[in-house]
């Protein structure tokens, strides 16, 4: 099991305090810097490992940045704290984005990121809670995170703790039936402490979602399952922050985060082949420049 990097936790804490005391514009600017930093880290990790899912990593980066830097009530120095907010990355193939975010918060040392997918590294291609603090459940096969999030939200309520549960799913993942089973339960139990975030980048591994097994009208479908739906620009920090405000309906909240797969790098954006393509050294250089 990796352990917290306390000096890094302190850096993260002061960054968080700065965010909390900033106005909307300054806050967005700070979050953007942080997200671009994460994207550079992702490119470097994937380029070095020769493996990864860069497109989905980039579409989810802003969501993760806002959650971990601003929204979640969790302590990287005490990752098992009973009443913590819980975060589950159901689209576990975007592990590089999660690892980079966790390391920046100090859940473990940033230097560990160089071992991404290397032999015997705790940083597997999909996250493992047994080895990585800040990971709540092992994901990878799609359609697993949301049922676990429903259980965790129900558990927090039964135990009378204040913790909320945030789960991020890929949009293609919404084709899995288990998610709709879980949405029915979330709504039935009125889990207003649950936030279901869909990274709506409109691409899945092989093609556009709407050309594969169409999800639209996704907002209406989620609403018809009883969720309070908030459809936003998933790269707009102010909108993301607002989307994580408490439920106003007593129902679980669905945040449909409209995003661009590959966001931030011109030749990767909205291109199906960059689901898990690995950048060449020249492309890596160009990507790092565009992200700086």
């Amino acid at each position: 099991m990796l352990v917290a990097d306390i000096p890094q936790v302190e850096v993260w804490r002061s960054h968080r305090e700065q965010l909390l005391s900033s106005d909307v514009e300054a806050r967005s600017s700070l979050l953007h810097e942080r997200a671009q930093d994460t994207r550079r880290s992702i490119v470097t990790m994937i380029s070095h490992a020769g493996l990864g899912h860069i497109g989905g990593d980039f579409s989810v980066t802003d969501i993760l940045t806002v959650l971990f830097d601003y929204v979640l009530e969790a302590d990287p120095a005490d990752p098992q704290k009973d009443d913590r907010d819980r975060f589950i990355l159901s689209k576990g193939h975007c592990a590089a984005a999660l690892y980079s975010t966790l390391a920046h918060c100090g859940y473990f040392a940033v230097s560990e990121l160089t071992t991404f997918m290397a032999p015997l590294s705790p940083l597997n291609g999909h996250p493992n809670r047994v080895k990585i603090p800040g990971v709540e459940t092992n994901t990878g096969p799609l359609g697993h995170g949301l049922p676990v999030a429903v259980g965790a939200a129900l558990g927090a309520r039964l135990r009378g703790t204040s913790g909320r549960v945030f789960v991020v799913l890929g949009d293609g993942e919404m084709q899995e039936g288990s998610n709709w089973e879980a949405l029915m339960s979330a709504s039935h139990y009125k889990l207003d402490n649950l936030f279901v975030v869909v990274d709506r980048n409109r691409l899945q591994q092989g093609a556009r979602t709407e050309d594969t097994n169409g999800l639209d009208p996704l907002d209406e479908r989620l609403a018809s399952f009883g969720l309070e739906v908030r459809s936003i620009d998933g790269h707009d920090y102010a909108q993301l922050i607002d989307a994580f405000a408490p439920s106003t309906s007593g129902s679980p909240v669905a945040v449909v985060a409209n995003t661009i797969k590959g966001k931030g790098v011109s030749f990767i954006e909205d291109r199906v082949e960059w689901h898990h393509k690995v950048p060449s050294p020249e492309q890596t250089e160009q990507a790092l420049q565009e992200l700086s």
Binding site: E136, P147, A152, L154, G155, S178, S185
Partner: peptide, 18 residues
């Protein structure tokens, strides 16, 4: 009647300390 969700919910409840 939703067994996949049932086992996932079980894991989440365990995660919450139950």
């Amino acid at each position: 009647i939703a067994e996949q969700n049932m086992v996932g919910v079980g894991a989440g409840l365990a995660n919450a300390g139950l």
